[in-house]
Design a protein around this nucleic acid. Sequence first.
DNA 1: GGACGCATGTAATAGGTTACATGATTAC
DNA 2: GTAATCATGTAACCTATTACATGCGTCC
Lengths: 182, 182
Amino acid sequence: MLGKAVLGLLARESLSGYDLAGKLRKPVGFFWHARHSQIYPELRRLAEAGLVSQRRVDQTGRPDKVVYSITSSGLAVLRAWLTGPLPEASARDELVLRAYSLWLTDPESAAAFMRDQERRHRGRLAEYEGYRADIERSPEVSDPGTPLFATYATLVRGIGYERELADWCAWLADRLVAAREG
Amino acid sequence: MLGKAVLGLLARESLSGYDLAGKLRKPVGFFWHARHSQIYPELRRLAEAGLVSQRRVDQTGRPDKVVYSITSSGLAVLRAWLTGPLPEASARDELVLRAYSLWLTDPESAAAFMRDQERRHRGRLAEYEGYRADIERSPEVSDPGTPLFATYATLVRGIGYERELADWCAWLADRLVAAREG
DNA sequence: GGACGCATGTAATAGGTTACATGATTAC
DNA sequence: GTAATCATGTAACCTATTACATGCGTCC
């Protein structure tokens, strides 16, 4: 899976391991991330499998680097994966897991906690809305053949996700205290 | 994290490892799952830490079993965790990762794929709506001090999640083909 | 001289999946 | 007999996180 994330980035532009690590620090497509300690070994594997090629780039004023490019065989692998069978997603969410045991705490603390989480996700939502305002100015967002279209699609998902989550936090916080008063 | 899921279940009722594995086969609270190979070692760790106690139950007509109960110290750990600091959730979603590279495929295949995913999530949504109809009949859902309240909260999150995801799939599929026609 | 960014790696540990393994009882 | 459910475990493998490690160049 990490390999596909890396190939997806390299299909857009050639990058060094360092650049890839930078992009994958914040989740790519808002739903995948990785650290450099994972990326360098993965690049070696991809290179050994012939899915990426490497090119040494000598630099002055900063350390030399190795730039990776996707190969035609890498592109083929990526394309085949895109619309292939998708295994059951195993959703894991610590926040919801906590909610499952929230009946053990006093409703006030629980509501305060959920309000705090709501704030967090509203913040991320606002950030994403900002990206959207920017990205929508480009006419390319309407063209499914452009990377920007795909980035936009993942951004819209990110916005929907954060909004739904924030709304749920608010709903739960309300319900926790409403029961007290009602 | 798995330990908290197990404690959360044992806070509701005492269970054997087998029972726990059964409950965790389908995600508990709709957002956490595990397999028996993970659960048995975890129970041993929890027992060693004094967070659960074990009791041998002899059975006739079926194999004997070991039933685990949460201890007061286990309850304390669970309560402390509930509203404690929540580390940044690292969202990982293969479907959205694929969307990030969907510009590489022809829009028709991509749209068909997304429609298929939409169907999948609408199905799960319908299933969850069914649970909700059932659960809402009980007056306990309004009482934050009951496990049912907490279960209901996670169910509502599951419904929101699936609906948002299905809507996004439909939106993306529309946009992929709309561009062709428009 | 020290902090920061560029650039790349390895090692230890933790978490999770798949597969291997056993053995009892019940239902067909 | 044979498949399914109850019941419990281990081992190999893969993935991911945290920490350790190095070294260059620039900016203050």
